[in-house]
Amino acid sequence: MTIHEHDIDELLELLWTLKERNVDSLGEALRISEQENPERIIEEMENAALVEIKGDKISLTKKGDAMARDIIRRHRLAEVLLSQIFELSDEAVHAEACKFEHILGPDVTESVCTFLGHPPVCNHGNPIPRGECCQRFKKEMKPLVLPLTELSPGEDGRIVFIAPKEHKRLDKLTTFGVVPGSTIKLHQKTPSFIIKIGETDLAIDEDIAKEIYVRRAENGDNRKR
């Protein structure tokens, strides 16, 4: 039987979560692993200098730690994306997130993280390891895509996507030209949201504004982030 990268990823993930709970027992890791023949995988990992084993104690090497960290980061970001944006059920979120963690490239991971506004924790409250983009975010303090409700009055936003609860709502917004790609200006937030699209002023409820996700544009300039 060959050892796949996939299996190693799974064990790295497992070791990371155990570490989060301050567990470093090799026996415990082998017991709860869902992979086939975990002993062999661990052996392989030791050979690849991903883990160090001393008696029953297992720990991640610097290299292994970095890899595990990335996997966990991808998994938990995927969870947030799938549950909060796509509103999938918990089971579906788990199953899909397990796939995502293996396939997301570094660039996509950054985009997802930025898109979600650099969330610090996943759905279950576990910390999401920070990425480079999060460091930059700290300086800029501006997530890339945010609900319209987060814009300040007077700001322009380019619509990235609309996540309506009802299709009818989407249809209505569409006929006014409120579609992904259009630029809108937020005029005010109370007593109702008022947006300007083209030369049309539209008053909308906060509920609807929450569902419109925009990329902030410096007045009139859509390219600037």
């Binding site: 917004l173 006014f176 109702s192 002023d201 539209l202 008053a203 909308i204 409820d205 509920d207 609807i208």
Partner: peptide, 12 residues
Amino acid sequence: GGSYDFIMELPP
């Protein structure tokens, strides 16, 4: 009855 949207055009 379900929810109802407030989407209204403000003419000049």
